[in-house]
Deep mutational scan, measured.
Amino acid sequence: NQASVVANQLIPISTHLTLVMMRSEVVTPVGIPAEDIPRLVSMQVNRAVPLGTTLMPDMVKGYA
């Protein structure tokens, strides 16, 4: 099972991601792979992401 990136807190819209905001967890459905966490740092979310939500490629500007 592959770990995905999950929000560690509420991430407001247009926030630049930091390591503190993300954790890796095995979830269904599978989202952005956990090994991409370093790549996600300083990218922006294009919507509010609630605590515990799996980050999907379409939620992060410039990821997909």
Rank of each mutant, 00 (worst) to 15 (best):
M22F: 05
M43C: 07
G31I: 00
P38N: 11
V6N: 02
N1D: 10
L40Q: 00
V20Y: 11
P57T: 05
G31M: 02
M56H: 05
Y63A: 03
N8W: 04
I32G: 01
M56P: 01
T53Y: 10
A34L: 03
D36Y: 13
P57N: 05
R23K: 13
T18L: 07
A3W: 12
I13E: 15
T28S: 14
V26P: 07
D36I: 05
I32C: 05
L17G: 00
V27A: 07
V30C: 08
P50G: 11
H16K: 14
V5W: 03
L19I: 11
A34D: 07
I32A: 02
Y63G: 04
M43Q: 07
S14M: 15
V49Y: 02
L10Q: 14
Q44K: 08
S24W: 10
Y63M: 05
P33Y: 06
R23P: 01
E25P: 01
V6C: 06
N8Q: 12
L10K: 14
L40K: 00
E35G: 15
L19G: 06
I11M: 03
M59D: 12
V6M: 04
H16T: 13
R39G: 11
V45M: 06
V27H: 04
G62P: 05
A34F: 07
M43V: 04
P50D: 10
V30G: 11
S4E: 02
T53A: 10
P38I: 11
L55E: 01
R23N: 07
V60G: 01
I32W: 00
V30M: 15
V20K: 12
I32S: 00
T54F: 03
L51D: 13
V41Y: 03
I11H: 01
V60H: 02
H16N: 11
V27F: 01
S4A: 02
G52R: 04
N46T: 11
V26R: 10
Y63Q: 03
V41S: 03
M22E: 01
R39M: 09
V49R: 01
G62K: 09
M59Q: 04
A34P: 06
Y63V: 04
R47Q: 09
Y63S: 03
V45Y: 00
M22V: 07
E25L: 09
A34E: 08
V5H: 02
M43S: 06
A34Y: 06
V20E: 13
D36N: 14
M59V: 06
I37S: 03
I37N: 01
R39S: 10
